[in-house]
Amino acid sequence: MSASPLISLSGITKTYGRGHAAFQALKGIDLEIDSGDFLAIMGPSGSGKSTTMNILGCLDTPTSGSYRLKDVQVERLERSQRALLRRHCLGFVFQGFNLLPRTTALENVELPLIYRGEPASSRHEAARAALAQVGLKGWESHTPAELSGGQQQRVAIARAIVTRPEVLLADEPTGNLDTRTSREIMELIVSLNEKLGITVLMVTHEPDIAAYARRVVHFVDGFLESDERKREIL
């Protein structure tokens, strides 16, 4: 008997506004994602991909339908419970890095552990290990202004994985980077997926970036139009 999927969306809809101003961003999304998968989410602006990512990241709730994460019925949780789920199961990487400008790389990576109330000694150790994992050993005391764009995104990835999340949500992670640096960042994300088993959900507009994923889904006008597996798990 096969294991149940890590993530399951069933009949997910999302409507913003009411009456004549209502806009249905999602129109019945069914999607299952297994632990360890690497999914690229594509589609034009307004297709529903960002709304889906917000729901998957417990940042928003569906209007109707079911969202299960690790057999937890997410849409039934209170806001504080969803925050706990985010804190313990999910890591986030954004296009704009979102680093605190006047703090060091080490302090930026420690932030999620501060929110979890972990003591300073274990925070320092975990943050140093995460920076080493992304190739930034020796850069702990540098501020974002002293780092290249690629290095800043590596710090952001270290911050996302320092809590050892099961799922990494990446929103256009290479959008602010040049081609060579984009390739390096994507190779790092592939490594985290394959070596650490982190499930990766990534929004991208770029086919060459989506090609790094094992599976590509396309959204159009609030519907999931296609779901293609690119390659088998190594």
Rank of each mutant, 00 (worst) to 15 (best):
A25D: 12
L26H: 10
K27C: 10
K27F: 08
G28F: 06
G28M: 05
G28V: 05
I29M: 05
I29W: 09
D30N: 14
D30V: 13
L31T: 09
E32K: 02
I33K: 06
D34H: 09
D34Q: 10
G36A: 00
F38T: 02
F38M: 00
F38R: 05
A40D: 09
A40T: 11
I41C: 00
M42G: 01
P44H: 12
P44R: 14
P44G: 09
S45C: 01
G46D: 09
G46N: 10
G46M: 08
S47A: 14
S47G: 09
S47Y: 14
G48Y: 07
K49Y: 06
K49F: 07
T51H: 06
T52W: 06
M53Y: 04
M53E: 03
M53I: 07
M53G: 01
N54W: 02
C58W: 13
L59R: 03
L59Q: 07
D60I: 01
D60W: 04
T61P: 00
P62A: 04
T63F: 03
T63H: 01
S64A: 07
G65L: 04
S66G: 01
S66R: 11
Y67N: 01
Y67H: 02
R68C: 00
L69E: 06
L69M: 11
D71G: 05
D71Y: 07
D71L: 02
V72R: 15
V72Q: 15
V72W: 03
Q73R: 14
Q73F: 12
E75R: 13
R76T: 14
L77I: 13
L77Q: 13
E78P: 04
E78K: 15
R79I: 13
S80H: 15
Q81R: 15
R82L: 10
A83C: 14
A83H: 15
L84H: 15
L84I: 14
L84P: 09
L85Q: 14
L85Y: 15
R86L: 11
R86K: 12
R87Q: 13
C89W: 15
C89Q: 15
C89I: 13
L90H: 10
L90V: 13
G91I: 11
G91C: 06
G91L: 12
G91S: 08
F92S: 00
V93D: 03
F94V: 03
F94C: 05
F94T: 00
Q95H: 03
Q95S: 02
F97W: 01
N98Y: 10
L99A: 07
L99Q: 07
L100A: 12
L100F: 11
L100H: 04
L100E: 05
P101M: 06
T103V: 06
T103D: 10
A105Y: 11
A105E: 11
L106Y: 04
L106D: 03
E107R: 11
N108D: 12
N108A: 08
V109M: 08
V109R: 09
V109E: 06
L111R: 12
P112M: 12
P112Y: 07
L113D: 03
L113E: 01
I114S: 06
I114T: 15
